[in-house]
Structure formats: structure tokens, C-alpha cells
Design a protein around this nucleic acid. Sequence first.
DNA 1: CGGGATCCACTATGATACTG
DNA 2: CAGTATCATAGTGGATCCCG
Lengths: 105, 105
Amino acid sequence: MILHTLHLLGGYSRPGQLQRSIPGLSKKMMTQTLRELEGKGLINRHIHQIMPPNVEYSLTALGKVFVEPIEQLYFWGIDHADALEALATNERLTCTAQNPLEVAE
Amino acid sequence: MILHTLHLLGGYSRPGQLQRSIPGLSKKMMTQTLRELEGKGLINRHIHQIMPPNVEYSLTALGKVFVEPIEQLYFWGIDHADALEALATNERLTCTAQNPLEVAE
DNA sequence: CGGGATCCACTATGATACTG
DNA sequence: CAGTATCATAGTGGATCCCG
């Protein structure tokens, strides 16, 4: 979801905007995931200023490769919203957070 | 992975074969997942005999819809094996079980 | 063989408070 | 604002034993 959102926002974003774009995402999980993605080489972390903190995350070349199939999945979800609703019965497979098929802001 | 394997096996399979086809999968997780998929209407459960137990799971029409994007993901993984290996550093995002890109048997 | 039940160690994650 | 640290707790999944 973070990769997808980052991609939707043009390939880069600040943490605040990122978190506001994914409603159910807690600060802890976001930071943790950003660290993982950074560790994997999927995103870059740019520090512009220290005070006030001004950080920007951006997709790396490798990150853009991984965004491709994710975008296809999101597109598929849009095209098959009916199939997704057909699973509403059992909650265990569905995502509790709102899927950011469309990202605010 | 179960949907993918079920699809690779022709759309139906018995539990034993299914579990043997996905090495890291425990009996508990397999049964649990099969129950969820059945509850969602993605697979059917057919009991042929009680003694000895002879059960067969098969993809439903809805299940076949969900197999599509999964297959695309697997194909993507095959085409981009190099990108996947590039993440080997950090383990937290990688799957512990062996990915059944190719299913035995 | 298929699968249910139980126990238990481990993990994940939200909440909260704190730092610079 | 960006990020860390700590805690409490719910969830996860393997191991094991059992049944028909």
C-alpha cells in the first residue's frame, strides 16, 4: 500500500502526507515499513532539513519494478469490485484498513 | 499459494497432494485456509468417501476469478527473479516458506 | 487419510510517552 | 514534524494428541 501510494503521489512523498493518504496506517507501522522498504532498496530516504524535520521518501529504480505488479493488482481490484464484495462474509481474508484504491490529497 | 497450486493441478486436488505440493505448509494452516477459501466461495469441497477419507477441493467460478491476478503475480515473479533476489538482505518481507513457483507432482 | 482441539511460544501492532 | 522506545495485548502458527 505504501509503494502504491508513493507511486500515486508521483514517486515521492513526505511521511506526513503519506500517512494521511493511508487512513488506517499507524505511525509505527509506517515508519517500520519505510525502514524495511529502504533496507530492501525499494525506496530512498532524503533528509532536507533537520529543524523542522523535512524528509522525503522516493521510489528507487528497484522500487518502481515492484510497483508494477502492485498497480496491476489495484487495477484488477477496481475492475473486479463485484468479486471482492462477494467475499464480505468472512472477515479473515479481508483487509481491515481501507484500501487506498484512490488516495486522498 | 493454495489457489495457485490448485490451479496448477488442474483446478482440483486432494488435501494430501495439496500439502505435499507446498512444502512449508502445515496441516493446520492448510485446513484453516481451505476453510476460509470455502467460506468465501472460492473453492468447493467434495467428499467422495468417508472410509477411507477421500476429499477433493476444486476451484469455483469465483475462485477462478481470483486465480487470475495470482497467476499474473507468479508469472511476474518468474520474469523478475533477479529483482526478487535483490531483496535477500532483509528477511522480514520475504516468505519463509518456499514459493511454489513450480509445483512438484 | 482428513481434520478437529488444545497448548504455547512467538509475533505483530496499537497506544502512549518521549526526543530533537 | 519525524522518529524512537516501551508496554500490553491480540493474533499467529507449529506441535501434539485425538477421532472416525
